[in-house]
Design a protein around this nucleic acid. Structure first.
Ligand SMILES: [Mn+2]
Ligand SMILES: [Mn+2]
Ligand SMILES: [Mn+2]
Ligand SMILES: [Mn+2]
Lengths: 225, 225
DNA sequence: TTTAAAAATTAGGTATACCTAAAATAGGAG
DNA sequence: CTCCTATTTTAGGTATACCTAATTTTTAAA
């Protein structure tokens, strides 16, 4: 295993490669690597049994590839918790450094870090932290933008992009905060939120990357409760 | 910078490359790399201004190479302190994992880890931890084997080799313990120690790799005090 | 001062992982 | 069903960092 292959595994995992085929282009875009290089690497990883590769169709993780991908994600998130809780990192800083630390986190280190952190269930950005055995359970969430005016929910997760994270942190947005939409300006205009009693305005784009407890049926768009 | 070059810098530093020329062979032996590869890499690092390389003579660190080497050592030792104090690592385990972590420890991370650990002065094996500005101050030590029967000193540092570390830890030897030599068996036989009141036998080889406060003048071999 | 061993360099080659450019394929629009 | 375009693959090439084998240089012994 090399950090490069690990990045491919993680990319595949994040793009849904544990459930369905993922196109080379998606991987190339995410990792910012030329499509030709992606083909080459995927071919090699296929021969190594990490992925199942169907030329011209796409690739998905094998059982062993999935295990590796999950343990990388686990290491990443545990480090984020450490960096934020104990070293005073910001949301975006923790993601940056965890991106490197994940590659040198053997199971022994992950296990001891996990214990030190008291077995956290979520990373600071709200993602579920896989257990040592690879177990992952995702709650049903929906983007904040899909909340209607007046509906109440709770902030559960945010996308991990530097600019977004810095923006959200400057607004004081936190995982777990109760939130309600007070107003939605038209034409992808800003949303006015009641954030745990505080009045906050956020961009539409940000509202697409903040996730709250699902209160709408994803098919019919009817309120679930 | 790559982890490989970083390993060369650290090797050069550990072999005294901040003070005098170091031969290619020493580096090759330490890093377990073929001498031909070492020549090649040193040539490149010389062109990059990291070392001063005199073909057929040896190499030494430049100012910038020394700074890098020191910050690697600093990262390494800070991680060791963390792994032992907070994650319950053993002496040998901490060295192993720190060997990898040191390569992904940007100054920001080192600074915050340093603060979290409350600015430790020594690594768990007794080495001085360089300060952020590169300052290093070494105390005068001598090998435990050079102590005469009856002389009292304190254990200050041990060499970092897996087998030695596991051996010493199993004997309950700790940095800072008062120690006196009760008997020295002839022909490189074992030493019997009074270790903080306890009676302990250690091999001659181990006594060469344990360092105590210097009480002999290194030139005349007379007792200093 | 010669000579032999040790150390270092050079030459030639491997594997990894990336690139660009060219050719092949697939899938949707008409 | 035929094109066209987006995607993918193949071909050829780069850089890094390692190797072994052959040659050169240094050093130290005779
Ligand atoms: Mn992250
Ligand atoms: Mn996270
Ligand atoms: Mn160490
Ligand atoms: Mn140490």
């Amino acid at each position: 295993m090399t950090p490069h292959k690990e990045d491919y595994l993680k990319a595949l995992y994040e793009l849904g490669g544990s459930e369905h085929l993922v196109s080379n282009k998606q991987i190339a875009d995410l990792l910012k690597i030329a499509p030709a290089s992606v083909s080459e690497m995927l071919g090699k990883m296929s021969r190594e049994g990490l992925i199942q590769y169907e030329p011209y169709k796409g690739s998905r993780l094998t059982q062993s590839g999935l295990q590796l991908a999950i343990s990388l994600v686990r290491g990443h998130q545990l480090w984020e918790v450490f960096l934020i809780r104990h070293l005073g990192y910001s949301w975006s800083e923790s993601h940056e450094d965890a991106e490197m630390l994940e590659h040198i986190t053997p199971p022994r280190l992950a296990a001891r870090l996990d214990r030190f952190l008291n077995y956290p269930a979520y990373c600071p950005h709200g993602n579920v932290i896989p257990k040592a055995d690879g177990q992952v359970e995702n709650a049903a969430l929906e983007p904040l933008k899909d909340l209607s005016v007046g509906e109440k929910s709770k902030i559960r997760r945010v996308d991990e992009e530097r600019e977004l994270l810095d923006y959200l942190e400057s607004l004081g947005i936190e995982i777990g905060s109760p939130v309600a939409v007070l107003a939605i300006a038209p034409y992808e205009g800003p949303l006015t939120l009641d954030l745990d009693g505080r009045n906050v305005q956020i961009s539409y784009k940000a509202a697409c990357q903040i996730y709250v407890d699902q209160i709408h049926d994803p098919d019919t768009n009817n309120t679930i409760f």
